[in-house]
Computed example of a mutant assay.
Amino acid sequence: MAITTLLLQGGTLPALIRVLGIRGVDATADLRESATLFDDLADTGLRVLETPDSILGAGTIVEPDVIERVRQDTFLRSESSWERAHVLEEKDAPSPHRQYRQLRLAVVQAEREALLTARREGRYPSRILAEAQRILDIEETRLRPRTAGH
């Protein structure tokens, strides 16, 4: 009985899926949708920079470089999303975000070497070195490429 049920239902399942138009997940389309969402979020989020004194307090002088840094970090997140969308199509295509990430990762790795030297030489207290190590670990994790499904 169980075999008959499996054969009957299992044999009709592909036809039913086609009739209902059920499709699997399109990873590239999902990544594009995600990138579009992050663009929309960035557009909305960046509007708060138009009135920084509403966040920091009336009369607060904000350096233009600070505003630009926040803007660029926000753009990097969107750019990263678009890069993940394109990575499935063009594995070796260089992008500004990929270049940024590779260069920043090289800087962090050089900083890690300097940290190890400072530790060997005993130039800083261990609690300060441990905190610096934690910060470098977080930065390196953030910079490592993620796979398309993550």
Rank of each mutant, 00 (worst) to 15 (best):
A15H: 13
P94E: 06
G122M: 02
L16W: 06
D73K: 09
I67N: 10
R18C: 06
V66P: 01
S54M: 03
V87Y: 01
T141A: 14
E121L: 07
E131C: 03
A118I: 12
W82F: 05
R77I: 12
E140Y: 04
A85I: 04
R101E: 12
G11P: 04
G149R: 10
Y100T: 02
L49C: 05
A93D: 03
E140C: 07
T141K: 12
T44W: 10
R98C: 06
D53I: 00
R120N: 07
I67Y: 05
I67Q: 09
P14H: 08
D30A: 14
G45R: 15
P96F: 05
I3L: 08
G59N: 11
T12K: 13
R101V: 11
L13D: 15
S78L: 00
T60F: 07
A27Q: 10
E83F: 03
E68F: 04
P52F: 09
E68N: 11
S34Q: 09
A130W: 09
A58K: 13
R127T: 01
D53H: 00
P125T: 15
T36R: 14
Q99E: 11
E33R: 13
Y124F: 01
L6K: 07
L105S: 09
R18Q: 11
R47D: 08
A106F: 03
L116Y: 08
I138F: 00
F75Q: 05
A110H: 09
R32I: 14
L88E: 01
L116E: 12
L115I: 13
W82T: 14
H97Y: 01
T5D: 08
Q99I: 05
T12N: 10
S81I: 00
R84E: 09
L7T: 15
T36I: 11
T5K: 02
V70R: 08
